[in-house]
Amino acid sequence: MAEPDESDASELVPAELTSWLRERRAFTVLDVRDRDAFETWHVSGPSVEAVQRPHQKFIAARVTETTAELAPAGPEPVLVVCAVGEASAEVAEQLRGAGVDAWNLAGGMAAWARHYEAVELLCSTATVLQYHRPSTGCLSYLVVDEGNERRAAVIDPLRAFAERYAADAAAHDASLAYAVDTHVHADHVSGVRTVAAQTGAEPVYPRGISSHEPSFEATPTLVQDGESLALGHGTIALETVGLPGHTPDGVGFRLGDSEQGDLLFCGDTLFLTTVARPDLAVESEAVDVMARTLYASLATLASMAPETRVAPGHVSESTRPDDGGRYVATLGDLRERLDLLGLDEAAFVERVTGSLPPRPANDAEIRRINLGQQAADDETAFELELGPNNCAVE
């Protein structure tokens, strides 16, 4: 079990928090932000008890010497959290003085939101990095051709981390040739145009995005089912697979691998614990139609080889990675463990339309930004996307 850095035993950095969550360590999160901020988004997980008590109560408790009465009843250690890690540091110290095993989340929720991890996926035809943003569950991918041309593609990049992809490609002696989105995202601000502007990479979207009337400064490349994006000259390519259903324009990209099993970067169509929601990009009267479209796309996936490995666009807080920290599963495994994939169409439509969580925060505004219909500076874009992704049915 990972332990906090001994150099400052009162501080827990975001990477260590990620380890606690993955290990299912039992602990309590004490969030000292206001109630609205807590209810919008807070640190959570299957092994976590999260409570909110405002900082002002702890200030008053110092005077009355009643801090112990404010200590949460959940399991210790107690991780104290605020927006930037300052008020929470005061509260953690105060709780320790009252005998509580309390820690401060260094940098607060701001640092948690900016924590981004990468792990290499097994692949015999290319180097593939899977990026994970633990605070929201977003996954992105960097695919690097290891041949003479050293070209790379980033799939579903996040704008907040645009510089990371180019740096990692350069670390592999490669240049970014493509910045690709699998669909119009509603939960985070896309990094496709930012990466393209910074690196000269070709921006790539599904052809179906045209129906949403995008307004981009530069004309992107549009791809549809059966078309490919070449990386190595005649060696490797990303084959487009039409996967509408989460959105009308959705696609996936398949990377051939005869040794490990093909990798399918399927965006938000299929996850490791459930399937996509069909309601974010259409009017309410069209949700049933989109659910049937999603059913057909999942049938397309069912026709693929069972050893095909699904690399999804998100994971939920309950999803566990493999021993190497990778979020990947074969289609064969998913068919066995996801009952949604065994339903007939009518039952499937009823189930997915009746299991819709709250919409992602600011989803309509984020979609407009991702379509180029609305501008947002970096800080505004970052603030808009904070919160759970909520792109899957429950």
Rank of each mutant, 00 (worst) to 15 (best):
T67C: 04
T127H: 12
A50Y: 07
V119R: 15
R62P: 00
A126W: 01
R114F: 10
H55G: 10
G107F: 11
I59W: 04
F58G: 05
E65W: 00
R133F: 00
V80G: 07
A110E: 15
G108M: 12
R53G: 08
A68H: 08
I59E: 15
C123Q: 06
S124M: 06
F58E: 08
E117D: 12
R53E: 14
S88F: 00
H115F: 15
S88Y: 01
A61H: 03
L79S: 03
M109R: 14
G99L: 06
E86Q: 14
T127Q: 12
W112P: 10
V81A: 06
V78I: 13
A92N: 03
Y131L: 02
Q94H: 14
C123M: 05
E69M: 04
T125K: 04
V78S: 01
P54S: 14
L122P: 10
V63G: 00
P134A: 07
I59A: 13
P134Q: 02
P75Q: 05
R53M: 11
A102D: 07
A102R: 01
G107P: 13
A68C: 00
M109W: 10
V78M: 02
G137W: 02
V51H: 07
A83H: 14
G107V: 10
V80R: 01
I59Y: 05
P75M: 00
E117V: 11
V100M: 08
A83T: 13
E120D: 13
P75A: 12
E86P: 00
E69R: 07
E76I: 00
R96Q: 10
M109S: 14
Q52M: 11
A106M: 11
